[in-house]
Simulated assay, not measured.
Amino acid sequence: MAPSFVVPSFSQRDYGSFFLAGALCCTISHGAMTPIDVVKTRIQIDPAFKSHNFISGTRSIVAKEGAAGLLTGFGPTAVGYLAQGGAKFAGYEYWKRSFVLIAGDQETAIRNRTAIYLGAATIAEFFADILLTPLEATRIRLVSDRSFATGLVSGFARIAREGGIRELYAGFLPILCKQIPYAIGQFTVNEYCHEIVYRTMTEDMKNRLSGSAKFSLDLGSGIIAGFAAAILSHPADTLLSQINKGHGPTGFMFHRLSVLAREAGFRGLFVGLGPRMIMTAGLVSSQFLMYGYIKTALGAPLGIEIHKDHKNL
């Protein structure tokens, strides 16, 4: 039987720090990426933008709406990802630790680390999306229809008034289909990128890594994880934009999604992937960098590592 091992305890204060760090890194990164997201969303749902790439789409929006047009939806983006980011990062730390405890020993945890990453990311994202969905619906409506409302409060209020809870959560299923693969790519690929590098090092080498080396590792891992997150989640992202625009038939969500997917085809589901890969690589890498720095500033502990090292090869 493999020996038991000590799993560090996290206090309520620690989880509060995880939540705050996740909230700040996500709202800052998503808020900064608003112009890219505006162009991406227009390419996905506006027929007039179907032939545009990121550069030509940006020029078209600025020419017609001014530079302010690139900041459409900034309010719901910042608020939505403040809540979602905190819940996602703190939830991932909580569920990863919980699954490590269920494994019972280090060997079992390492052997099942992929399942632990996938499970922790999936459950954390599910609860985070309950907070995100109404604000994401508001953002997409504002971006797709500039005359819909003047901002976050008026847009949210109009959707709630005209459609109620059902309309605010009309995109919950597609947003789960988008965000859960996104979180899986974000966390799992990032974990494995770090593991691949750490496998080449002894424990002493790892402990003596310079600040610039750690920065480079975190940045590179985040960029690769961002590419993976974008590719895995993009088809559902396209369908989510269509649903919130009001496209597709009425009826059950599975039916609506399947009809829209057939109409779009494989190529149509990946329209706008280029700009989104750029956006997501920047989002994920900056989030992991900021998350680490903010946790350190708050005096929070490191997360649990269950990587396979060189001794286990």
Rank of each mutant, 00 (worst) to 15 (best):
T250N: 11
R158V: 04
R13L: 08
L289Q: 10
C26N: 15
Y198T: 12
Q106L: 09
I36G: 09
L302I: 13
Q287G: 07
T296Q: 01
F227E: 10
I45C: 02
P301M: 13
R113W: 01
Y15T: 06
G292K: 01
N207I: 14
V100H: 00
T108N: 00
Y192W: 10
Y293E: 11
P181A: 07
F74D: 04
G91K: 02
I159P: 04
G292V: 07
G292C: 10
F19E: 06
D46I: 03
S98G: 12
S4C: 11
F99C: 02
S147D: 11
A213G: 01
A236Y: 06
V7Y: 00
F99P: 06
H194M: 13
V189F: 01
G303A: 14
I130Y: 03
S29G: 05
S212G: 08
E107L: 12
S210V: 07
K64N: 14
A170T: 11
V100I: 14
A297W: 05
P174C: 09
L71H: 08
T188F: 04
S154C: 06
L232H: 03
R111T: 08
R97E: 14
A228N: 04
Q179Y: 00
R113D: 00
A21C: 12
L152K: 09
V79N: 00
K64G: 13
C193K: 08
G274Q: 08
I159M: 05
G265R: 08
R158Q: 03
W95Y: 13
I304D: 07
V143N: 02
G226F: 02
A149F: 07
T58D: 12
M1E: 15
S221R: 14
E107M: 11
G211F: 04
S233E: 04
G164V: 01
G104H: 08
I278R: 10
F172T: 05
G16H: 03
Y117N: 00
S212A: 15
L257F: 13
E191K: 09
Y92L: 04
A121V: 13
I294V: 05
M201S: 06
G220K: 11
G265S: 01
I102T: 13
V6Q: 09
G80L: 01
T188D: 02
P249F: 03
H234F: 06
S286E: 02
A23H: 11
G163Q: 09
F74T: 00
A23C: 12
G151W: 00
E136I: 05
A32H: 04
A32D: 10
S212N: 15
G272R: 02
A67R: 15
K311P: 05
R267Y: 14
A32T: 10
L82K: 12
G303P: 07
F254T: 15
G251W: 10
K308N: 07
L302Q: 14
I61Y: 05
G85M: 07
G85D: 02
L269R: 01
F54K: 12
I159K: 05
I224A: 15
S98V: 13
A67D: 11
T250G: 12
I102W: 14
I116Y: 00
T200W: 03
K245A: 13
L273G: 01
G251V: 02
E203L: 10
G268P: 06
T114P: 02
L168C: 07
G80R: 08
A261D: 00
A83V: 14
L173V: 13
L260G: 01
G73L: 03
G171W: 07
F5N: 09
S212H: 12
I36H: 11
A2K: 11
E136S: 03
R161G: 14
F215S: 07
A21G: 13
A2L: 12
